[in-house]
Design a binder for these strands. Sequence first.
DNA 1: ACCTGAACACCGTTCAAGT
DNA 2: ACCTGAACACCGTTCAAGT
Lengths: 212, 212
Amino acid sequence: MSIRVVRKRADAYQHGDLRRALVQAGLKLLAEKGVEGLSLRAAAELAGVSHAAPYRHFQNKGALVAAIAEEGFRLFTAAMRKEIDASEDRTVLARLRAAGQGYVSFATKHPAYFRTIFGPPVWSKGGPGWDSLIAAGEESYGVLRGLVVEGIENGELQAGDPDQISLAAWSLTHGFCMLLIEGRLAPKGVGPATVRGLTDALLLSLERGLAP
Amino acid sequence: MSIRVVRKRADAYQHGDLRRALVQAGLKLLAEKGVEGLSLRAAAELAGVSHAAPYRHFQNKGALVAAIAEEGFRLFTAAMRKEIDASEDRTVLARLRAAGQGYVSFATKHPAYFRTIFGPPVWSKGGPGWDSLIAAGEESYGVLRGLVVEGIENGELQAGDPDQISLAAWSLTHGFCMLLIEGRLAPKGVGPATVRGLTDALLLSLERGLAP
DNA sequence: ACCTGAACACCGTTCAAGT
DNA sequence: ACCTGAACACCGTTCAAGT
């Protein structure tokens, strides 16, 4: 996943699509330097403009981060969908497991995107870009919820509130990812090799709890 | 929980216990201004010393944060233990539920401590103060694991690897807390009033999955 | 309408010098 | 042994001025 940032031409005064270039620059900084490496000034420099130029397109750093998070959400949702589609077993439970594996795999492959997507500056604002960010988040959640609804209907899952059941599955998977990428599990010897098996075991516990 | 920071006396040249004062100052900054408000310089100012003074006691900001996280862990563990002790129902399942409620309640009451405790700079280093931080984390984990072992022995939980079962419960609770305090659930209308009931519902799903 | 350059108030970190 | 003050390289943000 190599990211291309369109630089302003040195002889030009205007960029053309600075907004988009800054978002791409942000994704690149996250991928290469992590969450700490993402700054307005560094993004501006990658785009070849002065450090004040971003303020024509984003109210503040939070607005840029929200735009980056929105883009990150699309990558995240796509990765999860891909894993689901790849499941040979088409039962709801199998596809839920695939979704969980996709979730964990995205988090470990792109921890900085994952942290940004679920990070604090993004969701606690209600500022500019909030609506389309919420929409991107809802679409991602819709993938999970859709599977749960399907499972309730065909009897693979117990009857109940789909949102509550979804939240249980989401919380378990999300919590595991957080503990994993923050290194909290490292002292316990949980490394890349054991993640896949562990994820399946965790999801299995939950499946038993959500069975009819 | 009011935090007292011992300031250096203006007429004195040395502080006396600057290390401890800086940790207290850090906790105060976290409580009052959140994670963003915690800086070495601000902590130094609260302690009444110059901004370079902390470097006599901490190698860098990460080392101070680790020391603060260690103290936060003690508060966290104590809060969970208190909730467990308060449970009238002394079955393992009831005490596990109490632990879960204590976990969530600490996260919502002290989000900045919670984020610091489980945040990235703390666990991914291996730097100075790492060992005693790990110890504080292990003690916290031991509370959960102890209950799980007891449950397996008396048949309230299914037989299995205690660490795996603990991880399932931990992940579910932790993920719910993260989604909650990062505001990810706010658009769904999950507010303070509904948290307690929701927590119980989530833990119940898991209990079913971990039943014999 | 869009961008630049200087300025301001913050950071973390280093280092010579002071007590 | 412990702390200070100046310095450096970074931040986010604002604003008058340039194109």
